[in-house]
Design a protein around this nucleic acid. Structure first.
Lengths: 345, 345
DNA sequence: CTGAAAGCGCTTACAG
DNA sequence: CTGAAAGCGCTTACAG
């Protein structure tokens, strides 16, 4: 059977406590004992038993805080589901997760207040969707310096001391979108782009990835127009109508962010649904419906539930299992969906 | 903090052992005590602590056997990786997994022998890729009757008493393939099908799903030829050459099973790579290369690693956590890959 | 029918 | 610098 600390202690002729100290580098240990124990552990290929470890952690559970943007977005409801799932799984392992959703999406003061709230509760780790401003960055680094590990999710905050980021590789997902539209148009056509805002890093990155692929592999496809919709359906609708009126030759639309429904409505109103191929992102209910209706050909998911799940799991492995974070950018899979697999899994 | 068995025992004025018996319906308990304990547990919303439970199981670990086909197939190497991963995760939780790969793919006697081997080791659960013949079915039902839980993986064995099946929904994955080729051809064209064998249930199901979608949604796409390659590259090559010679109008090929490389070679030799769109299944290295080369437009993965992982996890939850198996067909996601996300995740 | 005790394997005060 | 003991929360013989 498995080798335990008890067995090592017997062989080394010391107590279990001493073995533990050697193995974890805590307390003063005489070099002779240290070496002996280390050798035995190594030769027996000792691996600590996790169940025992976790049971012990129940004595003094570690607290982890999670700050999510407003739940008005269906996207974050799914992130939260992932959080709840992993929270339940690690609850018995001495890991308590407290998740708070903000009232807003981008109120810096609110986010600062919540970070401070968690700091005062002496958390060991923090997961959040950070607002990318200096005051947040400073606050987060303050926590890091106080030995609180931070995982960002969904969108990153650059040049901070956070442990890692869990999210989509936006450039890459833009490339996937570009290739899909290239395939749909059989390599020839004119594209209209509907983007939330070029001020949003993720949108810009997707756009660049998209453009990149077209230039590299589909030289007969041209981007003929780009509109910004600020992620609003109404703006999206109006500007798309205008765009399609202006550019009658458009036969492909890439919707980079939200406002998917508005654009699709416009395509319908203009009676272009047979001609125009559409690629979008994410799997919010409206988008799913539009895929089912055949208006959207492909939509690219980023598995929000996984992002929530993974962020806490990384923290757990890091804090409890001393598992080093090898890659500080954990990318979610690029989940391509069509009418045939939109409802699946 | 969390409510424990100890606390319930205190409140009910009985011993921890008694509480345990009530909660798990074991041993004789006086109705009065039983009712009292049950009420307290319910009102306090008692949930057993998993870490403690798992630690206890280390006293007498449960054994689970896994029988996989020959590792000559890269596919099963990935399944095995999933098995190994979950095995490591549950090892400390009192769950030992022993995985044996067969020398062959379809030697019934060998599989029977391995099943008997595991039976003699008194396993609690068995995961396997069953050969779909009567003698195996009978043997498996024999194990089920001996209280051994069975999970089939990759391909199912019908009308048996197995607990559940983890694998791809082949009809569905065929549908996805059909829709993808429909999109690639913009709804018009002539398809050649390359199938392993109509005697293989999975292949037949994929073919039916594929055909179904074309008929329903792409009436201008026709299947003009079907060849069987017995999953062999050489046969695949020769028959594809013949097919393309005979049907010059083919502009789409659906490769249902293996032999992907042979077919693609033929397309290349006939200098049709620009004209013919190709959709295939799985992510074995040869297929990945062909996607990268731009010969294959889409390939549909079935996440073999997940299948391995999930099969053992289901058994673990069922045996240790008494988690009922709600759905006896656990479907893997349909993982659509293109040149842009073939190497991702 | 019920209880007292031991044990799963780890960690952490505490004592010396 | 080292050891003895307690405790995390569960389950299982064993005794009565």
């Amino acid at each position: 059977l498995r080798v335990t600390i008890k067995k090592i202690a017997e062989i080394a002729n010391v107590s279990r406590g001493t073995v533990d100290k050697v193995l974890h580098n805590r307390g003063r240990i005489s070099p002779a004992v240290k070496q002996k124990v280390l050798e035995i552990a190594k030769s027996l290929n000792y691996k600590p038993n996790m169940a025992a470890k976790y049971l012990h952690y129940n004595k003094k559970p570690a607290l982890v805080g999670v700050i999510l943007p407003s739940e008005n977005s269906n996207f974050f409801v799914q992130v939260k589901q992932g959080i709840n799932k992993v929270a339940e799984e690690v609850r018995d392992f001495g890991f308590k997760v407290e998740c708070i959703s903000m009232q807003t999406f981008d109120d810096v003061k609110e986010q600062l207040r919540l970070i401070d709230y968690f700091k005062s509760k002496e958390i060991s780790g923090l997961v959040l969707v950070p607002i990318d401003v200096e005051s947040i960055r400073e606050k987060l680094d303050e926590l890091t310096d106080a030995n609180i590990s931070i995982v960002t999710i969904m969108s990153d905050i650059l040049n901070s001391k956070r442990l890692c980021f869990v999210g989509q590789d936006y450039i890459h997902s833009g490339k996937v979108a570009g290739d899909l539209i290239g395939k749909l148009l059989k390599g020839e056509g004119n594209i209209g782009i509907v983007i939330g805002s070029f001020n949003m890093l993720g949108h810009k990155q997707r756009f660049n990835g998209f453009k990149d692929v077209l230039e590299k592999r589909y030289e007969k496809i041209e981007i003929v127009n780009v509109i910004e919709n600020h992620d609003e359906d109404m703006i999206s609708f109006e500007k798309t109508v205008a765009m399609l009126t202006e550019n009658e030759n458009i036969n492909g639309i890439y919707i980079v962010g939200a406002g998917v429904k508005g654009t699709c409505q416009a395509v319908k109103v203009m009676n272009k649904q047979r001609i125009i191929k559409i690629v979008s992102h994410d799997l919010i209910p409206e988008t799913v419906e539009l895929v089912k209706d055949g208006l959207i050909d492909f939509t690219i998911g980023q598995d929000p539930e996984y992002q929530g799940y993974k962020s806490v799991q990384v923290l757990f492995d890091y804090l409890f299992n001393k598992k080093p974070v090898i890659d500080d950018f954990i990318k979610t899979k690029t989940d391509i969906r069509t009418i045939e697999n939109i409802d699946f899994g």
